[in-house]
Amino acid sequence: MKVSNALLEEAVKIYKVLSNINRIKILYFLENNEADVSSIVAHVELPQPMVSHQLAILYRYQLVTKNKKGTHVYYCLDDPHILEMVDAMLGHVSHEIKGEPHPYSHTEQHSNK
């Protein structure tokens, strides 16, 4: 894949969106749930205005979708691949914390040849 500056700049914007713990909590909650704001508020235990603000940012970057049903707006995860990326980062962090080598690390690949 050829990586252009424009593509890198968009990726950096998504990384900035994901740099907020509350947004990641919301994304994980929505992984298997379609939920309205009050359900998300109850699950992530944050004030409603904060949850609404975070959802607006996630929606702007196409990480969640929204669907109005009556007077309620329901949100769901738009791109499950985004959580695969977060899972990969959490795996990286868990190895760092434990001081263990990463599976398939560059040094492991060379030592197995």
Rank of each mutant, 00 (worst) to 15 (best):
K66L: 10
A6H: 10
L83S: 04
H110K: 15
T107G: 07
V3T: 14
K68H: 08
A11T: 06
P101C: 04
G91C: 00
N32C: 03
A56L: 05
T71Y: 12
Q109Y: 12
G99M: 07
V44T: 09
L8M: 15
Q109R: 14
I97Y: 08
I97G: 08
P101A: 07
E84N: 13
L55T: 01
V41R: 14
V37K: 05
C76Q: 14
K13T: 10
S52R: 13
Y75I: 02
G99V: 05
K98I: 01
Y75P: 01
Q109C: 04
P49I: 05
E34F: 06
T71A: 13
Y28V: 00
D79P: 00
L7Y: 13
Q62V: 01
S52H: 08
K16Y: 09
L18V: 07
S4C: 04
V93N: 01
N22G: 11
T65A: 04
T107L: 13
L8T: 12
N32D: 14
D87C: 00
Y74P: 01
N32R: 13
R60G: 04
V44Y: 08
N112Q: 15
L18N: 04
I21T: 10
Q62W: 02
S105L: 10
R60L: 08
L18R: 06
H53E: 11
E100G: 02
E34R: 15
V37Y: 00
E108V: 07
M85C: 11
Q48Y: 05
G91I: 00
S4R: 09
Y74M: 06
P49H: 06
E96Q: 15
V44H: 09
L27G: 04
H92F: 14
Y28N: 05
H95S: 10
K69N: 13
L77W: 03
N5P: 03
S52I: 03
Q48I: 05
H95G: 01
E34Q: 14
A56H: 08
I82V: 15
N22K: 12
Y61M: 03
K25L: 11
V41E: 14
P47K: 13
C76L: 12
V44K: 10
I14Y: 06
Y74N: 09
Q109F: 14
V73M: 04
A56N: 15
A6D: 13
M1G: 15
I14S: 06
Y104S: 09
N32V: 04
H95W: 00
D78I: 00
E9A: 12
V3W: 15
N67C: 11
E45W: 02
Q109M: 14
E10G: 01
I40N: 02
S105M: 09
T65S: 11
N112G: 06
